[in-house]
């Protein structure tokens, strides 16, 4: 699934990263606890979160994640956008809540990956 498709199905707004819309994403992780995100490496993953602070971007950076989606209309601040630019990570924002956002991406073919119970 491309970043642009994620944007479309979640009716999300692009906060940063026009040049990364063509990027392929093959797995996903939804959490507000960053150490839970850090526990399982997923290849070419998108991170969905309702947490807004710079550690969200850093977590995605350390994990080589391809995209971040802020759910429930959460808005990253300037310092987070700066950090995303430095690391080339596109940022999206959807009004939908976490459960629904994950459900929509799952329906569109994305899977958890990485974690042993994700098949």
């Amino acid at each position: 699934m491309k970043v642009s498709e994620i944007m479309k199905v979640l009716e999300a707004e692009l906060i940063y990263g026009e040049e990364f819309l063509d990027r392929d994403v093959i797995s996903a992780c939804g959490s507000d606890m960053m150490s839970d995100v850090l526990a399982y490496v997923k290849e070419q993953a998108v991170l969905l979160t309702g947490l807004v602070n710079p550690q969200v971007v850093r977590t995605a950076e350390m994990m080589d994640m391809k995209c971040i989606v802020f759910v429930r209309g959460k808005k990253p601040d300037e310092s987070m956008i700066e950090l995303a630019k430095e690391n080339g990570i596109p940022l999206l924002r959807t009004k939908r809540e976490m459960f629904t956002s994950c459900g929509i991406l799952y329906e569109n073919g994305l899977r958890g990956g990485g974690h042993p119970y994700n098949g």
């Binding site: 507000d32 606890m33 960053m34 150490s35 839970d36 850090l38 526990a39 979160t49 947490l51 602070n53 550690q55 969200v56 977590t59």
Partner: peptide, 17 residues
């Protein structure tokens, strides 16, 4: 700290892994 997204008690196990 939990409100900042940390404090799941996963850090040290992750480091080991």
């Amino acid at each position: 700290i939990r409100a900042l997204g940390f404090g799941a008690g996963m850090g040290l196990p992750n480091i080991k892994k």
